[in-house]
Simulated assay, not measured.
Amino acid sequence: MLKYTVVGAGLFGSVFAFEAAKAGHQVRVIDKRNHVAGNIYTKQIEGIQFHQYGAHIFHTSNEEIWDYVNQFAEFNRYTNSPIANYRDEIYNLPFNMNTFNKLWGVISPLEAKVKIDEQRAILNGRSPENLEEQAISLVGTDIYEKLIKNYTEKQWGRSCTELPPFIIKRLPVRFTYDNNYFNDKYQGIPIGGYTQIVEKMLDHSKIEVNLNVDFFENRKELEDDADKIVYTGMIDQFFDYTLGTLEYRSLKFETEILDIDNFQGNAVVNYTDSENKFTRIIEHKHFEFGTQPKTIITKEYPEDWEKGEEPYYPVNDMKNNDLYGQYKNMAKENSKYIFGGRLGMYKYFDMDKVIFEALKTAKVELRLK
């Protein structure tokens, strides 16, 4: 009999499987897709590593996690420096002195702070009650109107006045001429893509991988065949939506292969107007400084999630978090199962945080030192 069955060959499930196998346990990993690596899956097209489920940039300040992931791949020096396109006006992200200079012509941090203070005065000192007010309190009205409002409303499918302020509380604002989006010490893209990382994790004599396997169609057999199951799918689906359905945002991707060597000059360009219904265009080759004669671009269109579609972003407002809390309590009563990952924990995770959570779970479960 298997010790563990892991439902989902994404990052959380694969890290757990790798740690369990190292500890001497027999593990089966299943996934309903025809490939491993979940949403970080990449494949080569026209010599370019193509991020099939949207851009993923690894970044962390945790040296232990950085060392851990580097045992599976060599990372390049890619630095995330996205730009915003507002009706063909180009601005640097995150909001920094380059942004402020382009917008207002200011040169010094003091001038920029004075300008923002003038604009945030519209709030009359009151605490922000929604995302719109939170954004204005951080960067003023000009940046909110040009670079936040439409992008955010496209992303979440609702007005900024209807969104909670916490969504944008960590908005990076810098009074330096620094276009590096992340503050983390370590950052990069694995040379040769992300899929290799998960493939190496699962390439172990004690791990069996079965693809194109739907957990819910084979549930009883899988439960009978393992001591414990690590479940990384949707927690509300696991309980057959008994208490209600959690909300997610989904994405639609439109990808083109172009017979030119450079389409937009940057890996990530956000479109912050209301006219374009996509939120951003990814040009994949720039993640690895590619020089191929062709290029691949992907437009990302956020959309409402419905059952049967891929859930990407949990909608972590009060209503959904309360519902998740009820499902979490139900999950605690089922000792055969371990729930983890973005869908099992109803939380959007950066990749380093997924690895951290998986290692923490493995340490407790496997009684590792």
Rank of each mutant, 00 (worst) to 15 (best):
K3R: 13
K3N: 14
A9D: 03
G10Y: 01
L11D: 07
G13P: 02
G13I: 06
A17L: 05
F18L: 10
K22N: 15
Q26L: 12
I30P: 04
I30D: 07
N34S: 14
N34T: 07
N39V: 13
Y41D: 05
Q49G: 02
H51T: 04
A55N: 08
H59R: 06
N62L: 11
N62V: 05
Y68K: 04
V69L: 11
V69G: 05
F72P: 00
E74K: 04
R77E: 15
T79D: 03
I83H: 04
A84P: 01
R87F: 12
I90P: 01
Y91H: 09
L93H: 08
P94C: 06
M97E: 00
L110E: 15
E111K: 04
E111M: 06
Q119T: 10
Q119R: 07
L123R: 02
N130K: 03
I136W: 03
S137D: 13
G140D: 02
T141L: 01
D142M: 08
D142A: 13
I143F: 10
K149S: 09
K149P: 15
N150I: 02
G157Q: 08
R158Q: 11
T161D: 08
T161Q: 12
T161M: 07
K169C: 08
Y177T: 13
N180R: 14
K185L: 13
I189M: 15
I191H: 03
I191Q: 13
G192M: 12
G192L: 13
Y194K: 01
Y194M: 10
E199A: 03
M201N: 12
H204D: 14
K206W: 02
I207M: 09
N212D: 14
F215H: 03
F216M: 07
E221S: 09
L222V: 05
D224A: 12
D224F: 09
D225V: 00
D225T: 08
I229W: 13
I229L: 14
V230A: 06
G233H: 14
M234C: 12
Q237I: 08
F239K: 04
D240T: 05
Y241R: 11
T242F: 15
L246M: 12
Y248N: 04
R249L: 09
S250M: 12
S250R: 11
F253R: 00
E254F: 07
D261A: 15
G265I: 14
A267Q: 07
V269M: 12
D273A: 02
S274C: 04
K277P: 00
I281F: 09
I282K: 00
I282G: 05
E283F: 06
E283K: 06
H286W: 14
G290D: 14
I297N: 06
E300R: 11
Y301V: 06
Y301T: 08
E303R: 04
E306M: 09
E306F: 15
E310R: 00
V315K: 05
K319R: 14
N320Q: 03
D322H: 04
D322S: 10
K328V: 00
N329R: 14
M330G: 01
K332C: 06
N334P: 00
N334Q: 12
N334Y: 08
I338S: 05
F339A: 01
G340H: 07
M345L: 12
M345W: 01
D350V: 15
K353P: 01
V354L: 09
A358G: 04
A358R: 01
A358C: 07
K363F: 10
V364L: 10
R367N: 14
L368N: 09
